[in-house]
């Protein structure tokens, strides 16, 4: 099995925001906030510092995106009915059928994806993500969860993810973390860190590499320290909604 992820090389990153704007262009991501005040974005750049660190004065960037976690809490929180979905490995052709809700972790490439058709738009996943990597796309009246897909749609046809292609610093390294020869794995070998804390250990697959002072500033500022309280009311409301959607689905099939 592969586990695709990304390393941000902060020694190279100059904080130019090309990645986040290219992503908006590629996926038509709206600006501003959704109705629950979440920032509408698939990836982002936040400038940190200048601030003191144990290793000296530092200023760096929190370059964020979906972490495609090992144990994604968003997937667990999805209240949509589970259905059987068959996944296949593009390399070996191997197939696996899993019972998944409207968001899942792909058993072959390790990315976390959303089925927009089955998404209830309840926002439970977005609320549960400690990295605030999800928001609700609310256009057209039917809200749907949205986030970084690691551009699997682009990589499937041989293109780089939009953010990687536009990065003038080549600071974004996307690849299979389980492939020991991949450039991304070499960064892991050099000590690229995850933004994890004692209470938030869900295996994020975005890692950061840089000088001690920059990593120190980043981890001080941008590591989530608690898992979000799940909004049970919202999940409950979403569950109430399901039968009607199911009915609509059956119309489609009839």
């Amino acid at each position: 099995m592969s586990q695709y992820g990304m390393v941000i090389d902060l020694n190279k990153c100059v904080g130019c925001h090309a990645c986040s704007v290219a992503c908006r262009a590629e996926w038509d991501v709206p600006v501003g906030l959704d109705s629950a005040n979440r920032k509408q974005r698939r990836n982002w750049v936040e400038r940190l510092g200048p601030d003191a660190t144990p290793h000296g004065l530092a200023s760096t960037y929190y370059v964020g995106l979906c972490n495609h976690c090992d144990s994604p809490v968003c997937v667990e929180s999805c209240p949509a009915d589970k259905v059987a979905v068959t996944f296949s490995d593009p390399k070996t052709g191997e197939k696996k059928t899993l019972s998944v809700a409207a968001t899942w972790k792909d058993p072959f490439n390790g990315t976390v994806q959303i089925d927009k058709e089955r998404c209830l738009g309840c926002g439970a996943c977005a609320d549960s993500c400690p990295y605030t990597a999800r928001y609700l796309f609310e256009e057209g009246g039917v809200p749907k969860a949205d986030k970084c897909t690691l551009c699997v749609e682009r990589t499937a046809v041989g293109l780089e993810p939009a953010c990687v292609q536009t990065c003038l610093a080549r600071a974004r390294i996307c690849g299979d973390l389980n492939d020991k020869k991949a450039e991304i794995s070499q960064y892991v070998g050099k000590g690229a860190v995850r933004l994890e804390s004692a209470k938030v250990k869900i295996g994020p697959n975005v890692r950061y590499y840089g000088k001690k002072k920059d990593i120190s500033l980043l981890t001080q500022n941008s590591t989530p320290t608690a898992l979000a309280e799940v909004n049970y009311r919202r999940i409950f409301m979403a569950r109430m909604l399901r039968p009607s959607l199911k009915q609509l689905g059956s119309f489609k099939l009839s």
């Binding site: 262009a25 749609e153 119309f251």
Partner: peptide
């Protein structure tokens, strides 16, 4: 009608 949520088509394809 069926419900068909908007899915951004991307810039390729």
């Amino acid at each position: 009608f069926v419900r068909k949520p908007f899915t951004a088509p991307g810039s390729f394809g």
